[in-house]
Computed example of a mutant assay.
Amino acid sequence: MAVDLDPRLLDVLACPSDDHAALTAGAPGDPDADALTCTECGRVYPVEDGVPVLLLDAALPAEDSEEQ
């Protein structure tokens, strides 16, 4: 299932890391994943029940997300 967020919300959301970059829907290699990916650092944040979990501890590091 793909992430279904209001486009205006997606425009406002940003990675909580020091980079503060924009997020895109999906994960590397899986554009339909229930996740948001940072355009700067590559961390992948899960979306659970339609709610983005933007916690650094919950994110998959960029290198882990590329291996899946």
Rank of each mutant, 00 (worst) to 15 (best):
D11S: 14
A21I: 02
Q68M: 07
D4G: 03
G42R: 01
D34N: 09
T24D: 14
P16S: 10
A2N: 11
L9T: 12
D64T: 04
D49A: 15
D18P: 05
P7Y: 12
H20S: 15
A21V: 01
Q68C: 01
D57A: 15
D57M: 06
D19I: 02
P28T: 05
T39N: 14
V3Y: 05
R8T: 11
Q68G: 10
L5Y: 05
G29A: 09
S65N: 04
A33S: 09
R43A: 05
D57T: 12
R8M: 06
G50P: 05
A59I: 03
A25R: 13
A27E: 02
L55R: 11
S65G: 14
D57K: 10
A27H: 06
D4A: 14
T37P: 08
D30H: 08
P16L: 07
P46D: 08
R8K: 14
L5C: 05
V47Y: 02
A27Y: 00
D34M: 12
S65V: 08
V12A: 14
L56E: 12
T24H: 13
S17Q: 03
G29R: 03
V12L: 15
A58L: 07
L23N: 11
A22E: 14
P46T: 09
P61T: 00
E40A: 15
A14S: 13
G42P: 03
L13Y: 10
E67G: 06
C38Q: 05
D32N: 13
